[in-house]
Design a protein around this nucleic acid. Sequence first.
DNA 1: GGCGACGGTTGACACGTGGTAATGCGCGTG
DNA 2: CACGCGCATTACCACGTGTCAACCGTCGCC
Lengths: 324, 324
Amino acid sequence: MTQADRARATSNDVAVLAGVSRATVSQVLNGHADRFAPQTAQKVTRAARQLGYQPSAAGRALRRGSSDFVLALIPNTTFGGNLQDWFERLTATLAAQGFTLVLGVTTASVDVLDRLVSQMQPAAVLAFTPFSAAERAVLARNGVVAVDPPSAARAGQDALIGRLQAETLISRGHRRLAFAHLADSRQDPFGAAREDGVRQAALEAGLPDIEVVGLAIHIDEALGALDRLRPPGIAIACYNDDVAISLMNAAQLRGWDVPGDVAVIGMDRTPVSQVTVPRLTTLEYDLSDAAATGAASVLRALGLEGEAPTPSASALRLVEGASV
Amino acid sequence: MTQADRARATSNDVAVLAGVSRATVSQVLNGHADRFAPQTAQKVTRAARQLGYQPSAAGRALRRGSSDFVLALIPNTTFGGNLQDWFERLTATLAAQGFTLVLGVTTASVDVLDRLVSQMQPAAVLAFTPFSAAERAVLARNGVVAVDPPSAARAGQDALIGRLQAETLISRGHRRLAFAHLADSRQDPFGAAREDGVRQAALEAGLPDIEVVGLAIHIDEALGALDRLRPPGIAIACYNDDVAISLMNAAQLRGWDVPGDVAVIGMDRTPVSQVTVPRLTTLEYDLSDAAATGAASVLRALGLEGEAPTPSASALRLVEGASV
DNA sequence: GGCGACGGTTGACACGTGGTAATGCGCGTG
DNA sequence: CACGCGCATTACCACGTGTCAACCGTCGCC
């Protein structure tokens, strides 16, 4: 009732209310309740709840040398709408373990990251794309745990994406397959694994090896890439929907029919991909799966519980359009 | 050279190197340098620079009750334009005043914000969209400065956007103008001001009042909205590029020529907007302007220097396509 | 009955900072 | 020459937390 009425309650307030010393409060609330009599621990937890006690982040950070913040570096790509979903789930999972998620942006200069990390002293830094050497140095210098994107699981997931794209194309009768990368490799961290997934599926189906192109989101590059693939009769698995839309429009400019002459499948199911003519066939990725993976990685890196989740195709859903 | 070689330097390290007491260091570095002999102050600042001294955020926060973090709440909308650029500039401006920018995401539940704010005790919270009552309550309870979006400047900027869209359409000879909102008002916080901008420009040009539609990014809604505008001979200023692309594709499905029968102008210059057929005419917004506005608002709210910047059209650039 | 053992609890310290009361010093004046 | 006065510098405290060594009471054992 009077919870959180006034200023923040300190561990001393809890101690007074529970009739024990502050040291007891600290130990009970930090996982050492077994050192005390059960009724003492209960008194403490009850008092803490009654006061709505939340330990001061500043005090904790000062004493322990690192905060309870987990810094997630979001890539430069535009925010998909489902980022919010991802963020909410990761926040909830980490909050259950006492961590608080905050966001940073990966910038060209590491100075920003340096300042951010040295100020916040986060418990861990999580990224989607592999850390650069400079970034890794900054993190090491500040003694911060760097949580790499779970490359194994991630690669497995990406291979699944490529495989599913290829199988969709093959099931529609296409026999000459290609993979289209996003040219800027900085924005295409998952392309290699997806390309491999497409290749594997093609080989297993007894098709010839796939062809590979790369393009930036620019109509001239899309035209060039399409010409190199020698339509008609080409089926292209694309790194993302933007690449797919670029190629689709290039095909229209060249007078090729989609999907008759050029088949295209994307990835991400961006809103725009569902208003194109023809509507884009693409894959939707349930980010809650990625959130679980990310949270597990963080917890494991911090030495807490957390099993390595296996990549599951259940997070991938085929969005049927008319481009294959 | 040996700067930042090992662990963080403390104010004590600076004091030892400068040959003074720690309190002297604190006062000199906290704006009370005039209380000391010039050469003493110089010794301190020199030693601090040599060691790369940065005061511990935890220590400061513990002592002062609030941290030097500024929390920016990014809206749920797809963040058109270059978030990275905006983030970098705002970070730089705030860093010059000793503040560090971190990002949070606005979620439906305020619990996330509550936890974030109570943990971080930020110096200020900055948002793009007006705070809800619940959010404001959370901030007030935690004694945190809430920096409202500079609605006046923001509205002025949005009015400029609408005006520029309208003027572009008018200059191409279009006489029946419309504005297309994004249906989900939660994702369309700036639509009203932009619609007004279009309307004003139309009235000043002696044209009839504009028509207004709203649509989600879905082809059926786009078709419905287009039909309500009774082509041919309609020129549509759109809330963003996604809306514009949707309407362009709807026009193609209905057999209307773009821009002959239906003219469309977007906003944001998303990558995809430049590979459409025809290429979309749109506006590009230099986010550094918004960053300057945001930074000034924060500094003013914190009682520091900062003049209110006026909205300038210089931040807006017309990207010539072939859709008008 | 004395002594060691042991579980339960607590005082004391350190983390790094910012501010305030007090100290030392030098210099001018009576 | 002594005294006081102003100023540069210093000692100390508080912020809230986590942890360790030390303490205390009780029990078992010889």
